[in-house]
């Protein structure tokens, strides 16, 4: 049923860190088209650092990150901009620009990177907000809406330009279980509708199993990836006690005991 896998992001032997302090080393994984790729791991294992490097905010100490077989950090400024244009990013706290209404927040990428007219942009913004369940709420300011709405508005901004790759940083953090579930469904719908590839940073187990079909497990102690693959497969087959402990909320499986 599955067509041949087309790699979208390839991380090759990347070391990440701040100055002399190495956070992650020898990171290798591949994200294929249409994947929902989960980056998981305990707090402080370098998930956010990895995300920063994936979205072009922080260059790796060594190694390559390839998007559609183009090495991001070897491109010049315009090449990078070209790659960045295909990203949609949902930041952990929303990161909506607080001086603009949520409608204007969604409209800004469209104003900057398309030649659409004012009314066309308005229609498109209305549509994107409708997709995330916020239709008719264009004129609200980010400070005046709930955390869940802020996440949705931020997602609408992330998908404003029909990105090919969507990065989600802790999408369900701060949401109640019902809304977190709805948000997961929304992510699946959008992935299917837009044909995008999704990279999710999270440690919400429910989300991990609900949406992920591929993933990487970061470990804080060895500072590298200790497992990759479908989270459900990892749960069933991993023999690494750290992975199993994480995926079962601390209940260790019998096989991994000495």
């Amino acid at each position: 049923m599955e067509p041949a896998k087309q790699p979208v992001i390839q991380v090759m032997d990347v070391d990440l860190g701040y100055d002399e302090h190495i956070v992650l080393r020898a990171v290798n994984f591949t994200v294929n088209k249409g994947d929902i790729f989960i980056v998981m791991g305990v707090s402080g294992c370098g998930k956010s650092t990895l995300l920063k490097s994936l979205i072009g905010l922080k260059s790796p100490i060594k190694g390559k990150v390839l998007y559609y077989a183009r090495s991001f950090w070897d491109e010049d400024e315009s090449g990078r901009q070209n790659i960045l244009c295909r990203f949609g990013i949902l930041y952990q706290s929303g990161a909506l620009w607080s001086s603009m209404t949520i409608g204007e927040n969604v409209a800004l990428p469209l104003q900057l990177f398309t030649s659409l007219s004012f009314s066309q942009i308005r229609e498109l913004v209305a549509f994107k907000l409708a997709l995330v369940g916020l239709s008719g709420q264009e004129d609200l300011f980010p400070s005046g809406i709930s955390g869940g709405m802020r996440k949705r508005a931020s997602l609408a901004r992330a998908i404003a330009l029909d990105p090919q790759i969507i990065f989600l940083d802790e999408p369900s953090a701060g949401l109640d279980p019902v809304n977190a579930r709805k948000f997961d469904d929304l992510i699946l719908e959008l992935r299917d509708g837009l044909g995008a590839t999704v990279v999710v940073i999270t440690h919400e187990l429910a989300s991990i199993f609900a949406i992920g079909n591929n993933g990487a497990f970061l470990d804080a102690e060895s500072k590298t990836i200790i497992a990759t693959g479908d989270p459900r497969f990892l749960l069933a087959n991993s023999t690494d006690s750290r992975v199993v402990r994480f995926l079962t909320r601390g209940v260790e499986s019998k096989e991994s005991e000495p």
Binding site: A130, L131, G133, L134, S135, G136, Q137, E189, G193
Partner: peptide, 10 residues
Amino acid sequence: LASKAHKGGI
């Protein structure tokens, strides 16, 4: 998806 959300919207 868009029209579903649209009906529920305020």
